[in-house]
Every structure is written in C-alpha cells, then in structure tokens.
Amino acid sequence: MKHVFPLLALGLGLVTGFAAEASARDPVIIQHPPPRVPAVDVEPFLDAGCVRSDDTLDCSASPTIQPFGCFGNTLHIDEALGGLAPRVAIASCNADAREDGAVGIVNLGCMLPQKRRYLLATGGGRFELLDTAAAFLERFAPVTSQAEALGFAVALTTATPEDTIEINDGRDFLVDRIETTNVRKVRGGYRVRLFDMEVCGCGLHPTSAVDYFVPNSGRVRVAARAQVYQFSGFVCID
C-alpha cells in the first residue's frame, strides 16, 4: 500500500514548490469514453470464503486461498482485466517481495515491496496461480480485441487507466494537451494509453502518459512516453 504525506505535515518546514517547466495555462484535455470491458467475475472467490470490500477481497478466512501466500491474505480486483479471453475469474494475489525466492510479473510498492501475481478460478473450487509474464501470455494470448489489449497492458505493467482528468490545484500540468485512456486498433495489434506515476521517496512524483503497443502475441512494449503532470508540492510516498 502506498502512503502519501505532504512534507509540511512531517514538520520539515518545506512548503509547496512549483516546477519551472509547468504549463502556464490549463491544458486541453481530450476525454475519451472509457473502454467497454465486461465486469470481472469474482463469484468463485466469494464461494471460497473471501469477503469483498470495494476492489479488494479479504481471504483471511478462506482455507482454499491461504496456501497461495497472497500478501495480507488479500486479493485485488482490477476491472480492466474483465476483457481477457478465455473469460475467467481473476484477481491479483501479490507476493511479499522481501521473501527469498519471491516471483512475480511486475514489482510494486516502496517500503513494503510486493510482486504482482494473478490467481485464477479454474472450476470446481480450484485455483491456479500465474506468477510470470510467460505464464500469463500462455494462458491468455493471442490478443484479438480492444478489451483484451487493455487487460494485457494493465496486467503486465505498472501503469493504470485514467478515464477522467480534471484541472485542480493539486498538480501542475507539463503539457498543453492530454488524452485520457483509450485503445486503438493499429497495424499488428493495439495501442493502449495508460498513466504511470513515479512512486517512492519524496518529490513531485511526475505522472507520464504511456502509449503501449500490444501486438497480437501479447508481448507488451512501450511505444511512447511523456510526463504530463506532477504534484504542485513535494510529497513523500513510502
């Protein structure tokens, strides 16, 4: 979990500072309709004894889920994965990266580092753990739809969708034009716009708009990246 603290609240006597390169005027924001993605199925996790709260599943009372070693016995639901095919109940089951031999698809967290993994329901009360990108590709490739492309880009990177971007006093914009998350069909696959914030430590934590190319093979790669906004003042994230 990320913990965000303004430095002033820590008693360090630092006040908000503005970056010299911040945009002098509000940017033009192109608000795309959110990609249409089916809802993620979570019923098998509930049947296994997990309890849902918003986008998390507390599985501390589930003898079926506990052996998979999910950090804090908690699963995380990401609605962006609802378009994966074949369709399956899926939730992230992160591993504690401080443990010897921990394996995962991407690295998450700061002072409490984790490795993202995915738990799938395979029917009959059974579950399967995917803890590498290769295993994820083997299970879900090829990518044949915009909804699948979104799921691959989110599952295999640290970036996330932003369906709405609002002008507010909490951040400085670094560009004159921003497009929200969208998925476009291109030659050989799809181009997916996501957003990725620089986390950990103290600073302005710029967020980049990242365009990922998701080919039919599912091997996601960065096509373009540009910083688009940052916090108006120094913030500590651990």
Rank of each mutant, 00 (worst) to 15 (best):
L57G: 00
T157K: 01
P113Q: 07
A226L: 07
R139Y: 02
S60F: 10
R184F: 08
N107K: 03
P161E: 15
N168T: 00
L194M: 03
I65M: 05
I178M: 01
S217Q: 08
A80C: 04
C110S: 13
M1N: 08
A19P: 00
R36F: 10
T157I: 03
Q230F: 01
F234T: 09
L130I: 14
G13K: 02
A121N: 05
L14G: 04
G233L: 05
R98S: 12
K115I: 04
A155F: 12
D172P: 00
P63E: 15
F152D: 13
V15G: 01
A22K: 02
D211F: 11
P27K: 03
D238W: 02
I165P: 00
A133P: 08
V4D: 01
F173N: 00
E148N: 03
G72P: 09
D100P: 12
L174P: 07
P215E: 13
G188C: 11
N73M: 07
C59K: 04
T181N: 13
L137D: 06
V42I: 15
P34L: 03
V154D: 03
P34F: 04
V4A: 01
A80M: 01
Q114E: 13
F136Y: 15
D26N: 09
T16L: 03
V235Q: 15
V88E: 14
V143W: 07
Y118H: 11
A159V: 08
T158P: 05
D238R: 02
D238C: 00
K185Q: 15
Y190C: 10
V143E: 11
S92D: 12
D196Q: 12
P63R: 15
H3T: 05
L137A: 02
Y190I: 14
R126T: 15
G151C: 11
P6L: 08
I77V: 13
Y229F: 15
F234G: 09
S62A: 10
Y118D: 06
R36H: 15
P86C: 12
V15H: 00
L84I: 15
G109R: 06
D41H: 04
L10W: 01
D176C: 01
G82N: 00
G125I: 04
A20E: 13
I237P: 02
P161Y: 13
P35Y: 11
V222H: 05
G104W: 05
N168D: 03
I237Q: 07
Q146T: 12
A39G: 10
V154F: 06
E21M: 12
P6H: 09
A141C: 10
L7H: 04
E128N: 09
G101P: 05
L174A: 12
G125Q: 09
C202G: 13
L156E: 04
P34G: 03
P44Y: 05
C236I: 02
M111Y: 04
G188N: 10
A209S: 14
V51R: 14
Q66H: 14
Q114I: 02
G82H: 00
V210N: 10
